[in-house]
Design a protein around this nucleic acid. Sequence first.
DNA 1: ACCTGAACACCGTTCAAGT
DNA 2: ACCTGAACACCGTTCAAGT
Lengths: 266, 266
Amino acid sequence: MFFWAIFDESSLKELFMTPRILDIKTQVERENTLLDCAHAFIQRESIAALTIDKLVKELPFSKGTIYNHFNSKEDILLGLCNRGMSILAELFNRARQFDGLPREQGLAIHFAYMLYAKLHPTLFMLVLTAKTSNITDKASASKQEEHLLLEGKLIGPIVSIFQESLDRNEISPPMPMTLEQLAFACWSLSFGTNALLLQNIEHCGTRSNLVVERELINNVNLLFDGFQFQPLTNDFDWTNTISRLKSITFCKEIDNLKSRGHILAI
Amino acid sequence: MFFWAIFDESSLKELFMTPRILDIKTQVERENTLLDCAHAFIQRESIAALTIDKLVKELPFSKGTIYNHFNSKEDILLGLCNRGMSILAELFNRARQFDGLPREQGLAIHFAYMLYAKLHPTLFMLVLTAKTSNITDKASASKQEEHLLLEGKLIGPIVSIFQESLDRNEISPPMPMTLEQLAFACWSLSFGTNALLLQNIEHCGTRSNLVVERELINNVNLLFDGFQFQPLTNDFDWTNTISRLKSITFCKEIDNLKSRGHILAI
DNA sequence: ACCTGAACACCGTTCAAGT
DNA sequence: ACCTGAACACCGTTCAAGT
């Protein structure tokens, strides 16, 4: 029995072209299902092991349909990367609202970045992957736009903290530096620390005694002291700041880490 | 006319099993030819575009023979990565021998790393790629051994500088730090700065005013000041150090950069 | 109109056949 | 013994056929 035998062309056209109210909602839902699935997969296996064929086996729709939502595998990865950056942006905003001195908020930002890297290692790594391979080239224009927008949302709170500390005369680097340069110095240090320490440490004999949370806090304090960011490391009780970050600002994230068996070394 | 018709089995065996003196030399030569070729290719195109088929088209031997020298594509990439690390280790040794204070030598190390990243961007990126994808897993045991050995050779001069500055009482971080932690703080900052700034900057609106050589020197000075590494940024004529690095220690590398149209902003 | 999965072009790796 | 390239299994992407 054939479909075409039941309907004539005009009624078919009517059936198919009838605008369905649920369509847009379904579209978004499907995109999320796919990203959820891809995220779970690369968390379980690895980015390298991700395959469209393997992905489609776990999805309620077919291979062809994937390409109605994402124009390439790289588009999926950038979509996932952007999702991670949204999460990170929310953490940065909370850090910016920490009730305390600008330097405490600056520490909070780095603390947030480290928590993010520990909570979502695969999403953190995805930014790295996006930088090394030419993911951004193959991805869709819309995803690339979103990516740039999110980069701005991440830089925002950092620049704003430095602006405030300059206004309050609480920072005076040994050489003239723009807000952008100050923010960039922080970003490089944090990025480098997380990237180098997040990798499978067991392989690397030389880094065996390093714990990311301790090194991160140390490195940030060193850099901030270099900025002459007041109050200096030894002129303030930073353990209180960190315990408030742990018990109040990021308590949900800390609980999440604990439930997965990770205990912070600080 | 068949080969087998001319020789009987024993004379064939004799012909083939005769130890050829050139064999080992040819083996090494072929490996180098392949690595040269792969290097040129990813410099011209990209790591992602590298294909065994494309590679073999430019080589004087066939696809199967490649697998007599390298057990996988990842093995080739790790081989190339190791080659880069050898070059870098040589630069670090020269930096360590810079005639000056430990802090000057520390600056020289970072300067060397930046020069390396600028001179061999694809080799620098290969370390990043090796870290993100599981290249190290698929590569041969011998290449992995070599990789760890080279990591040690890179850390060596850095640790040695810090040991000397501790002996001379020229360093006193605001918190207790091991030699390993000191070296790691430097590595993270340098790695992060190079990695973030080496990427195609035109894409990224927020980083448009940043020049890697200037930011690198700034960031290192900030971190060293955080270490209380004597003499501090504003207590010494560092421009003299940098001009000696440019005109003496790394003059060959600077010339090389110039010949390619790169002019350092410092 | 939308979904499907066979089909396609291309990839890394192997191995029987040639020398 | 060593080299070769056809053959294989698998990949991302497309598109004719089905509904």
